[in-house]
Simulated scan of single mutants.
Amino acid sequence: MKDNLLTPVSRRCFLKNSVSLATGLAVAPSLIGAPRILKHYNEPNSVINGVPIGVITYSFRSMPDQSAEATLQYVVDAGISTIELMGGPAESFAGKPESSMDRRTFSRLRRADREGEELTEDQKKELADMQAQVESYNQEVAAWRTKVSMDKFTQLKKMYNDAGVNIYAFKPGAFGIDNSDAEISYGMQAAKALGASHVTLEHPSDDAHTQRLGKLAKKNKMYVGYHGHTQQTPTFWDIALEQSKYNAMNLDIGHYVAAGNPDPLELVKGKHDRIMSMHVKDRESLTNGQKNRVWGEGDTPITDVLQLMRDQKYTFPATVELEYQIPENSDAVREVAKCLEYCRKALE
């Protein structure tokens, strides 16, 4: 694969590069009808034989710049044209308040406390102070979400669309049990402004909350895709699906196999009309250790599922989620591109 990666860029640099490319093409005498060509020139295309191959931008979490502009560059460099966008880049672009707290230290202390590790008095005080900071910050963010304009999300959609990237799902941290109805509606309206058909979140394992989300989804005309890990079973989503037509599935076939379930093909066949998007990764089965593996080395029938989607003309996106350890001589963008190539070989 040809190395075409760029260093993290600012929005100004990204747009400058795009404008420079457009200018060069527009004046090239050999390009008759350049405006029409320009619209699609050098755009990524990850729809393969009718199957949309996307990526969740969480896959680029190891990259140094997590801005919306840099994230877009990672997506384009990987050859992807449709995405599930995490909340961080989009909300930062829209002006979400920033936290100065050291979240790594907070996570480490909270994990140690939860696992019963003995903390020193200084560590206990630090943890308590950080918990108070988190609560205060969450309140600040909640207030921001209830009054922020959708204009920046619309602007972000245009920036991504102009680069040939469509946003089909949005995953901000606004849909939890502790989030207000106003925050939840904000997340759904932001998704709509981004052009998404659905929002995604981890299944809350709380029937009252999925019913609440289903009602708010109906009100906002936005589907909710519930994601699962190794708690997935063939009936995992049934109650939520019965509660509302706006409750849907964000299936993960890698986690599904790692949980010890039967072949996911039957689940996909039986519930394809309720799947909004599907995460793809290669994990070992329960009996083989459950590890995340380079695609093709685990037990997840990725090729079979993709070919089923192609042959049955299922149109929900198959979402690359990069979970295996990135080799030392590579990075997330290169590995996502390899996953896309795996899908291309399976589908062509």
Rank of each mutant, 00 (worst) to 15 (best):
D3Y: 10
L5N: 10
L5Q: 15
V9P: 03
R11K: 14
V19M: 12
V19I: 15
T23M: 13
E43R: 13
V51Y: 07
G54K: 07
Y58D: 08
E69I: 00
Q73C: 11
P89Y: 08
S100Y: 04
R103L: 13
F106L: 15
R108Q: 12
R111G: 04
E126P: 05
Q131C: 10
A132W: 01
Q133M: 13
A142G: 07
K147S: 13
Y160V: 03
V165R: 06
V165Q: 06
F170W: 10
G176Y: 12
D181F: 11
A182F: 00
I184M: 12
I184T: 15
M188N: 07
K192G: 02
E202G: 15
S205E: 14
S205P: 00
H209W: 15
R212V: 10
G214Q: 05
A217V: 01
A217F: 05
T233L: 10
A240S: 15
Q243R: 12
Y246N: 09
A248V: 06
M249Q: 02
H255M: 03
Y256K: 04
A259K: 05
P264E: 06
K271A: 04
I275H: 06
S277C: 10
D282N: 01
Q290H: 05
G296L: 02
G298D: 03
G298F: 02
G298S: 04
V305D: 02
Q307S: 01
L308Y: 14
M309T: 04
D311V: 00
Q312C: 05
P317D: 04
E335T: 07
C343V: 07
A346F: 00
E348L: 08
